[in-house]
Design a protein around this nucleic acid. Structure first.
Ligand SMILES: [Zn+2]
Ligand SMILES: [Zn+2]
Lengths: 726, 726
DNA sequence: CAGGCATGCCTG
DNA sequence: CAGGCATGCCTG
């Protein structure tokens, strides 16, 4: 059996349930296909029954944008409502709710550049038949959607029917196969709705309040409300007081209804309910076990759980009571019975909670609060507030409203000094296409520290992942060998300059790398932080002395050899495959156990190379110099024009030189000051070639196929390092 | 209704299901209480029905250790089996399997110091009655436990019955209320078992293999096998080939059975099954939808799913087939249908998969592999391998087998230089009770950078969280105000010393803090990195200009005022509560909007204080000094004796002084070297009071109640800062 | 109650 | 396919 579906949807993901839905729709029903435009295929879904291969990639979109909608409402006054954009009313009209005093309430869910790609559920688009108007809405605060052509869009990345026999075995690059199992909401027998999410005080001046305004909360506070975000952060299963106020007393038997609604347009029609894990019916009441929101009252009979007959929305109502004497607010206690992150339930989708003051189904007032149910309300609140603030300031600085995230180009053009060290502090995105950040630092010391760390990280970008991984493995091995070496870590700089560099006092007779710095080393003039991408001094560490064997002091390296020999012969040879697979075949595992094979790729790296360094001591009488540090980079600048081409990088170098106190100017120093130090700054101009193509994903196979090749490429990256003294 | 249970268990956690179990056991059944020793209460479980308060803390232990067990086996030769430690055979003997050729197979699940505290399920301890031997075991490879007194221990941290009306509202320090819903395994009608997990080649030389040995795998590889860990990392719902080999052909109709078993002793009796989310019965077969492990064969009839009649273990069998001609191995395709992290299922508990070669229920061979079902097999494999390697080397260095993690004491004694900067590189744990780390750094430059970062982080420990949070908010506010200010970040140090400190070119007419350093500032001699816990120069930033309003250039601070005034009057006053709640009441939120109230707590912090600094310039003619940096800490040492008491901390200070080039020794420098710099190191002895009690959780309320109080305590922490020149 | 890890998953 | 975020939860 082989089927082919050719869609063109916009780029969203299909989850497991959507896939099932889609597969049933392969025999198309008119109501579904009415809203789908079939275009030339982008991807092909091929299913081979019973075999091991199965992949699906398709993009989905609908021709209709989120249309406005209208429904009944009992009040004409509704100052909070916006008039929806009714430009695209589709065919499948639902006339059920178009009674007299209808109002428009299409909230303008603007995808303001912060949105990612979200999954949604196809099932809601399944039965587009209109419902007879005799079915009365039970929740008047719910606005029923008239058209089902909400902006749906699907982009498959999860081809697996989880419970089927499909398999992604031989597809080496398939997306995460467990991406299904999301959003099992909206039972297909109900009709989706979009509740209004507009604040509306109404004639009784209905207000909501979350107690004392706070500026922050402990990380794991039970709940905390952010005024800035109008968002409640609350732990799951925690009773959270919500306070309501009416300036004018509402009629008797008025109720307060709470219903959760997904915030984003892709999900707004989904019914919010508990995830399967938390829905376990160990509950007396079936309804209650499914409801996300619970209310707590002294008497259970005061709490009513309802499920919308039409849309299946789960809500809870309590009677509105006047505040206690002397109190301004009426407090209702709510509990949220899932996490916002619950898989198969809310699934990290932002949530709104709509509180409505109602009388006999009429909405008297409405208050909408975003709610995040999480484990660390305090942490997450601070995080979101900071994010919003920085985003607001970034977009403010750019002077633009919509600041769509400019995609980062490849990292070869990221050598500018203006760079993010911490996160998300975007500023001045107006000049050029490279996103830039300014980190403000109080205090020169801290500034220089962080700048150096930044530079190190920048330079690390020019190392391949293999290099870094090899470095780490090397460190681990060295560590294992030097376990018995208790290094004295405190030092001062009063040591004699004639003293030879101390070797670490280690029981290991064969230190693997002779140029290793330890904290007891006095200043050997070796620069590990070189600027022209010198290789790290490391072994690729496939010389694995496997630690399933008791790690004795075995030395993988001959002490007299260079660092990059493969001395360990203890690992059995598993295969004769080449070390780095070059064929791009399906396998993901890189074989090891190749110790007996020659490694020409690594023979280029030798100790001499790693000890090459520059010296700025020119002109200082050597008799004065006690010791000199390696070079450090003080600042770098580069042209920020992104993309391929040539770029000029300016690097300020610094070398600190300690002078002997017997110099002629030593008399200037008091007896306490034993050290004299001089720093000279120099400026280098580096010309950097920024060639996009060499870093594209298509090249990754090749890049990681050969460590040598990687090095060569690195050397090509920064060429003509010309020093230019100031 | 109020019930009190007084137990004394060892420290493990109770999850939701355990709590339910426990609550049904409040009317104790003999079989349960037989194995529980009731001791004087440590904690009290009090339940107030329908009210808002409910907390439970109890510790649980059993008097019996994990006992050995025995069962039948059809072969006498069993080289892989260890003889279990049968020292503690308990009362509830299960004689069902004690047939002729029994063997012992108590795997010595050693808690080798890496263990944390784990949850488990009480239900398995519920029916300890023996089962008549007439009930024949369907899975002979399963070894049935004879005693139910496995080392169970429970420590409640999750008092909430999630679906009940319990509430933790007014308990400010309760643990995460959603910690329930874990481990819904082991249906109570089955009897727990401990399958053997010992490799056993058997007479047919049964072996397992995972293809080419690899040294690593891409982060999101579909599956990868670590030889070092004997562990398979595999994505969920991905077909993974497993290869089997028998040197001698086994009999016809031999089968290969795969069953998953929890690795840890606390969970080993739990049946491994799919989580509720993934168990959704959209499957034709009920069994298959529950089974974690599936096998894939060309013909479905070749795969058999079984559930143990006794223990409820879910397993899958396929017929063993000879390898294809020319092939060494027979390949069976398996799929794992949950993640190891699945809440309500495996729940992050390590997993073993036991593959047995069987013939008519007789075990002919057994191979056991740890399995982790995760989303990033490659990443997680590398991570675990690195962790094991470093742990092995660390324990090797200590020379001890059992290296129980020494608990960190409070952080007041963590000022020693030997400290972890990266992670988990434990070395030399032998001298003293303070855990120490050595970070080896290649290259002096990098070493000094990281050391400074380390020191900064150390010193940051002495700032309260409020201080840090306030600092960040201040940064955000400053950032918002300076969005239009494009700071030039490159600088050299050739500026004239007579030049006044530049202010940042900002459109904001009122910079909030006058002592803010920006990267364009030349060296004002203000030390932000002070050592005696001087306050950060920051506003507490409750002067919130809420960013829900469009962030204009409003200035919360009068430009001429000190940093700590509350200038913003725009926020409505919400309450008259004191700024920092001192009462330790239920709320976690810290109110803000107190701008109109005087803030005595903050009046201690003023600009003068924050600009206090020490200077090491003594003795240098001021005519030579062009500019001087603030003090930085070069190294610190302290006595590492933990616990309360007094400790001596040694701090090496450094100040860099730039000299004018018109000094008499300027002739020594060449024209390129425009700057002269001098560094003097000094040594201070700080006497630190390390008072445990002031940092216990019980004090936290008070500590965070008052920022002023916090500062005072900080000042008490490091007293008598005596400078002592070398 | 904060630090920080663990781990799924989104993005480029 | 790697970087890195998001977010529950463990530890001290
Ligand atoms: Zn849930
Ligand atoms: Zn699962």
């Amino acid at each position: 059996m082989r089927q082919t579906i050719n869609f063109h949807f916009s780029s969203f993901k299909l989850d497991h349930f959507q896939m099932q839905e889609l597969q049933t729709l392969v025999s198309p029903s008119e109501s579904f296909w009415n809203d789908i435009t079939v275009v030339p295929p982008l991807f092909t879904f091929s299913e081979t029954e019973g075999a091991l291969e199965n992949s699906l990639q398709l993009d989905v979109f609908s021709t209709n944008e989120l249309s406005g909608f209208s429904t009944n409402q009992t009040e004409t006054q509704n100052p909070g409502e916006e008039s929806g954009n009714l430009n695209t009313i589709s065919t499948a009209q639902n006339v059920q709710n178009s009674e007299e005093n209808g109002y428009q309430c299409a909230p303008t869910y603007s995808n303001n550049g912060l949105m990612r790609t979200y999954s949604t559920d196809l099932s809601q688009h399944n039965n587009v038949t209109s419902i007879p108007s005799s079915l009365v809405v039970t929740q008047p605060n719910m606005v029923h959607q008239q058209t089902h052509t909400t902006p749906m869009g699907y982009h498959s990345s999860s081809p697996n029917n989880v419970d089927g026999t499909n398999s992604t075995h031989s597809s080496p690059y398939t997306p995460s196969p467990n991406a299904g199992y999301e959003y099992p909401t909206s039972p297909p027998t109900t009709k989706p709705s979009i509740p209004s999410s507009t604040d509306y005080a109404g004639e009784f001046d209905f207000h909501i309040n979350f107690g004392e305004a706070t500026e922050s909360a402990p990380k794991s506070a039970q709940y905390t409300y952010s005024h800035q975000l109008n968002k409640l952060f609350v732990k799951m299963n925690v009773t959270c007081p919500v306070r309501f106020k009416c300036s004018r007393p509402p009629p008797m038997n008025s109720v307060i209804r709470a219903v959760a609604v997904f915030k984003r347009p892709e999900h707004v029609t989904d019914v919010v309910t508990r995830c399967p894990n938390h829905r376990i019916p160990d509950e007396a009441s079936y309804i209650q076990s499914r409801h996300l929101i619970r209310a707590e009252m002294p008497n259970d009979s005061q709490v009513h759980y309802e499920v919308g007959q039409q849309d299946g929305r789960e809500s809870v109502t309590v009677f509105y009571e006047r505040p206690q004497v002397g109190a301004e607010y009426t407090t209702v206690l709510y509990k949220f019975m899932c996490l916002s992150s619950c898989v198969g339930g809310i699934n990290r989708r932002p949530l709104l909670t709509v509180f409505t003051l109602e009388l006999d189904g009429q909405v008297l007032g409405r208050r909408v609060v975003e709610v995040r149910i999480c484990s660390c309300p305090g942490r997450d609140r601070s995080q979101e507030e900071r994010k919003q603030r920085s985003h607001a300031s970034a977009s403010n600085a750019g002077g633009q409203e919509n600041c769509p995230k400019r995609p980062f180009k490849n990292f070869q053009s990221t050598m500018e000094i203006i760079q993010n060290v911490t996160k998300k502090r975007k500023v001045s995105p107006s000049n050029g296409e490279q996103e830039e950040f300014v980190l403000k630092i109080r205090g020169r010391e801290k500034y220089e520290i962080i700048r150096k760390v930044k530079e190190a990280l920048d330079l690390m970008d020019h190392l391949s992942n293999e290099q870094i991984a090899a470095y780490r493995r090397k460190e681990d091995e060295d560590q294992a060998k030097q376990d018995d070496c208790h290094v004295v870590t405190t030092q001062d700089h009063t040591g004699n300059s004639a003293q030879a560099p101390q070797q670490v006092n280690t029981n290991d007779p064969a230190p693997a790398v002779s140029s290793v710095f330890t904290v007891t080393d006095p200043l050997p003039p070796v620069t590990a932080t070189t600027i022209d991408n010198e290789p790290f001094s490391m072994t690729p560490s496939h010389s694995s002395h496997p630690l399933t064997v008791t790690p004795t002091g075995e030395s993988p390296c001959d002490p007299s050899a260079t660092c990059f020999s493969y001395a360990s012969q203890q690992q059995p040879v598993f295969s004769s495959q080449s070390f780095w697979p070059q064929d791009g075949s399906t396998g993901f595992d890189v074989p090891d156990g190749q110790e007996n094979k020659p490694q020409p790729a690594l023979e280029r790296q030798n100790t001499t190379d790693s000890q090459r360094f520059m010296n700025l001591l020119n002109g200082i009488p050597s008799s004065l110099v006690r010791e000199a540090s390696g070079l450090s980079t003080t600042s770098t600048t580069s042209s920020i024009k992104p993309g391929p081409g040539r770029h000029v990088t300016r690097v300020m170098l610094r070398q600190t030189i300690s002078l002997n106190r017997d110099a002629e100017f030593a008399k200037l120093w008091k007896e306490e000051n034993k050290e004299t130090c001089s720093t000279s700054d120099q400026l280098c101009n580096f010309v950097t070639t920024n060639d996009d193509s060499s870093w594209l994903p298509g090249n990754i196979k090749t890049e990681r196929g050969d460590e040598c090749q990687e090095m060569v490429q690195q050397n090509n990256t920064i060429d003509t390092p010309t020093l230019e003294f100031l």
